[in-house]
Amino acid sequence: MTHSVAVPPEPQLRPMLDAYAQAVAARRRTIAIGAVLMLVAIGLSSVGAEVRLDTFWDKIGNFSSYFERLTLLDTGARVWTDPVYWFWGLRRWSLQLGQTILIAYVGTVTGAVLGVAGGVLASRNLSRSGTVRLIVTRVLEFCRTVPDIVFALIFVVAFGLGPLPGVLAITLHTIGTLGKLFAEVIENIDMKPVEGIQGTGGSWLSQIRFGVLPQVMSNFASYSLLRLEVNLRGAAVIGFVGAGGIGQELIVAIRKFYYSDVSAILLMLLVCVMLLDFGSEKLRHRLLAAEQAR
């Protein structure tokens, strides 16, 4: 089935075409000006940060040669030619990697639970006291502003070497990050179920339990799984300062120039993160599909 389109006469069409051309030209000018301003800002920032392209170009060979050295055993052979020699410390590294995974898991779960409480108290539509909301918001900002490795250093001094400082550092940083995300999710919920429970005499906790959580649980779980992936990498890094896990072994290998050990540990971390990413992605999609099916 064909449809005919009436074309206005030239005197009537010309002003519309001119207006369209002017609008397109104005948009292109805006984009061009924005691009120029962005390039100028990048250039000024690079000067202020002492980013020098000549130094980068002169030293780029050191970067590539280091990764080339990671592929060599002490005998000079490539690492993949002798996997047994390459992964000579597999048993010890596996135990330390398992400890890193547990640090990330415990820190994420604890931080997520406390982050739910922080998100509820920091949300504008649920927090009954402006003072409490202000205090909780500032606490969450502090927790996510301080790097987790700084928290780890503080806790190592306080509690000594081991996984406990790592768990505490991961927990605090997770509270700050997830608390902020949870608060934003809560502020976008439908308040009608909450008002209905309130109208029937339900307590504030009942409103949270039956009116809020059913709407946000899938998002909470999705954000928590994403945070677990980040925390696994973070747990490996904070091991550099003695907070337990595979990071302690990795920093020793780096400092002593045990190149093949560095590459073996990095490969184990990479495989672990890939498996975690794959599993958490599948679980997130199932949660979101279940939420949409309701």
Rank of each mutant, 00 (worst) to 15 (best):
V167K: 13
S260E: 09
I189E: 07
I60W: 07
R128K: 12
A49P: 00
L250V: 14
I254F: 08
T30A: 08
E10P: 09
F155Q: 10
P163W: 03
V150H: 02
V216I: 12
L269M: 14
G202C: 03
P193A: 14
G179T: 11
L39D: 05
H3C: 01
L226D: 06
R255N: 13
P83L: 10
M274L: 10
A289P: 00
F257W: 12
A122E: 09
L17N: 04
F142L: 15
G118A: 05
A49D: 05
E184F: 10
A289C: 00
G211F: 10
L288Y: 06
A49K: 09
F155P: 01
Q198M: 02
Q198W: 02
A21W: 06
V156T: 14
F257Y: 12
F278H: 05
G202F: 13
A41H: 01
L269W: 09
V5Q: 00
L72M: 11
M38A: 15
I238M: 05
Y258V: 11
L17E: 08
F67I: 08
W86Y: 13
D58W: 00
V116I: 14
A236V: 07
I170S: 02
R133N: 14
D148G: 01
K180I: 10
V40T: 15
L205W: 07
R29A: 14
I238F: 05
G211Y: 11
A35Q: 06
L37F: 13
P15Q: 12
R52G: 08
T131M: 14
H173A: 10
L95N: 04
M1D: 12
L53F: 11
A253W: 01
T108L: 07
V212N: 11
V5P: 01
T200W: 04
R284A: 08
F220Y: 04
G211N: 05
D190W: 08
K180Q: 07
F155K: 07
C143F: 15
F240H: 02
A77I: 01
Q207C: 03
L126W: 12
R78F: 14
G160T: 11
L121K: 08
L269G: 07
R209Q: 12
W93Y: 10
Y85Q: 08
G119E: 14
V273P: 01
R124W: 03
I189A: 06
L164D: 00
R227A: 02
A243W: 01
V7R: 11
N219Q: 12
G119A: 11
Q248A: 06
S45P: 02
Q99L: 06
T81G: 06
L226R: 03
V237Y: 03
S64R: 09
P15T: 09
S46V: 00
Q22W: 08
R227F: 04
L37T: 14
L225Q: 05
P214N: 13
L73G: 10
E229D: 09
R14H: 08
R233M: 08
A26V: 03
T55C: 00
L95A: 13
L126Y: 07
E10M: 05
G247C: 10
L72N: 03
W57R: 04
D82K: 04
R286H: 13
I208Y: 05
V146Q: 03
M16T: 14
Q292G: 03
L287H: 11
V216M: 03
L70G: 07
W86D: 07
G242I: 02
W80I: 10
R27S: 12
E184Y: 09
A25R: 13
L73C: 14
L250D: 12
G176T: 08
D148E: 12
C143Y: 14
P193M: 15
